Amino acid sequence: MTMTLVAPTVAGYEASADLASLLVRTAQDDALSVSAETLRLSCKCAHCTRARFDGRFPKAFPGIAITDIGDLGYGLNISFSDGHNRGIYPKSYLLNLAGQ
């Protein structure tokens, strides 16, 4: 008997009603959630990478909210209430952040 493993894929997403989390639905119909703060802390854009390198990246983003989500196909461009809008989150990275 052969068992085929299927990696979870993102089928849908939306910001939570309070904008404090990204709600993700997988093609396997799992409902996952990633906090806006986790997303903001996990941004890998050049600006955030440089700020980490220079020791200027904040350790927390209390009260941060998701203000916009753009779908790029392979990932999401998420904008935040602090004005940051450079982060692109590949869908596989989002699933990792959500513990999948």
Rank of each mutant, 00 (worst) to 15 (best):
G73K: 01
L41S: 05
S79M: 03
V34Y: 04
L22S: 06
D54H: 10
I78D: 03
L39R: 00
A11Y: 00
N85D: 14
V34K: 02
Y93V: 00
V6M: 09
H84L: 08
G12C: 09
T2M: 15
F80Y: 10
S79A: 12
S79K: 07
S21F: 09
V6Y: 08
A20G: 11
G75A: 03
Y74G: 05
R86F: 11
S42Q: 07
E37V: 12
G55P: 09
F61Q: 15
F61V: 15
N96V: 01
F61Y: 15
Y93P: 02
A27V: 01
G70A: 07
S81F: 07
S33F: 06
S42V: 05
L72N: 08
G83D: 06
S16Y: 03
M1Y: 06
T2V: 15
F53R: 12
A51E: 15
G83W: 06
S21V: 05
D30V: 08
T67M: 07
L97H: 04
L23K: 10
A65P: 02
S92D: 11
A60T: 15
F61P: 14
L72W: 06
H84I: 07
C45E: 14
I69P: 00
A65N: 03
K44E: 11
R86I: 09
Y89T: 00
I88R: 10
A11L: 06
Y74I: 04
M3V: 14
S33L: 10
P58H: 13
A27N: 07
G12E: 11
N96L: 02
A27S: 09
D71M: 10
C48E: 10
A51I: 10
R86K: 12
Y89K: 07
Y74C: 02
T2E: 15
T38E: 10
L41R: 07
M3P: 02
F80C: 05
Y13K: 01
T49H: 13
D68G: 03
P8V: 01
I64A: 09
S92F: 03
L41A: 03
F80T: 01
A51N: 14
Y13A: 01
A11K: 05
P62K: 13
A27L: 04
R86Y: 12
G87Y: 14
L95C: 00
I66S: 04
L39E: 02
A60S: 15
D82I: 13
G63S: 10
V34M: 07
F53Y: 09
E37C: 13
Y89A: 01
N77I: 06
I88N: 11
T26Y: 03
T2S: 14
P90L: 14
A51D: 14
E14N: 11
G75D: 05
T2C: 12
D54N: 13
L97R: 05
F57M: 14
V10W: 01
Y93L: 04
G83L: 08
T38W: 08
F61M: 15
P8H: 09
L32K: 04
R25E: 11
P58I: 13
V6I: 13
A7M: 06
V10N: 00
F61L: 15
S16C: 08
A20C: 11
M3H: 10
G73I: 02
I64H: 08
P62N: 12
T9A: 04
L32F: 03
K59M: 10
G75F: 05
G75I: 02
R52L: 02
L19N: 00
P62E: 15
I69T: 02
V24E: 04
L23M: 13
G87C: 14
R52E: 04
M1L: 08
A60R: 15
A27M: 02
